[in-house]
Design a binder for these strands. Structure first.
Lengths: 103, 103
DNA sequence: CTCCAATACGTAGTGACCCTACATGTAGGA
DNA sequence: TCCTACATGTAGGGTCACTACGTATTGGAG
């Protein structure tokens, strides 16, 4: 989860709702997180110091815009490594080989 | 989790402790689940009807040997599909290109 | 003008579940 | 005798994603 949100913020600051939509679009609608998942997760990441938020108002709507911190960038790199490792391990244990890839 | 345990039982009946070791060996020790994870998970799978257990005694030690049910086999196939899909979605969302592979 | 959807943020409560820690007992080697 | 490996189990805690609900504005459809 955390890695996914961080990855979305990698290409520039975004507000929560935009993060949710970006994630949905990036996965062809297959990963459509509810707001009750996204917002608490962003708060968690901010408390952890991985992202930094700031309030603004755009066309009458208040927005909390987040951007990656240096620590967040490092955490994202770690999350990518960790995911690769994790996926390889699970794929191995689940059988069928690491990456069948249209055999 | 469930899929991993089911996969371990695919090649024949095993008892809980053996499942734990098989999983550890299959992943080069990278996935060494504690007994407090394995046993409750097996109980869960049995309650769900995906595996079927039976007691026996081997060299003075009592064993609960599990084997896949038909439903369990179907569930395992589904879990493999689901994992492939899931891994693809996460990999896509996590970005960094399809497969950076030692950039 | 009214109503509803989309935008945008948030919290509370629930349920699932993995893990730590502990308990029990046998077999076998140091 | 003691410790390790084998073998199973429960209890409690902490994390976390999700459902459901609440608040507020903008803008388009009817």
């Amino acid at each position: 989860m955390d890695g996914l949100l961080l990855a979305t913020l990698e290409d520039g600051p975004q507000h929560g709702y935009a993060v949710k939509e970006a994630l949905r679009d990036a996965t062809g609608g297959k990963l459509d997180l509810p707001t009750g998942t996204v917002y608490p997760a962003l708060h968690r990441l901010e408390r952890a110091g991985l992202i930094k938020g700031s309030w603004s108002v755009v066309s009458g709507r208040r927005r909390r815009t987040y951007e990656l911190t240096e620590q967040g960038r490092r955490s994202l790199a770690g999350a990518r490594d960790h995911w690769q490792e994790f996926a390889a391990v699970i794929s191995a244990a689940l059988g069928g080989g690491p990456w069948p890839a249209t055999n």
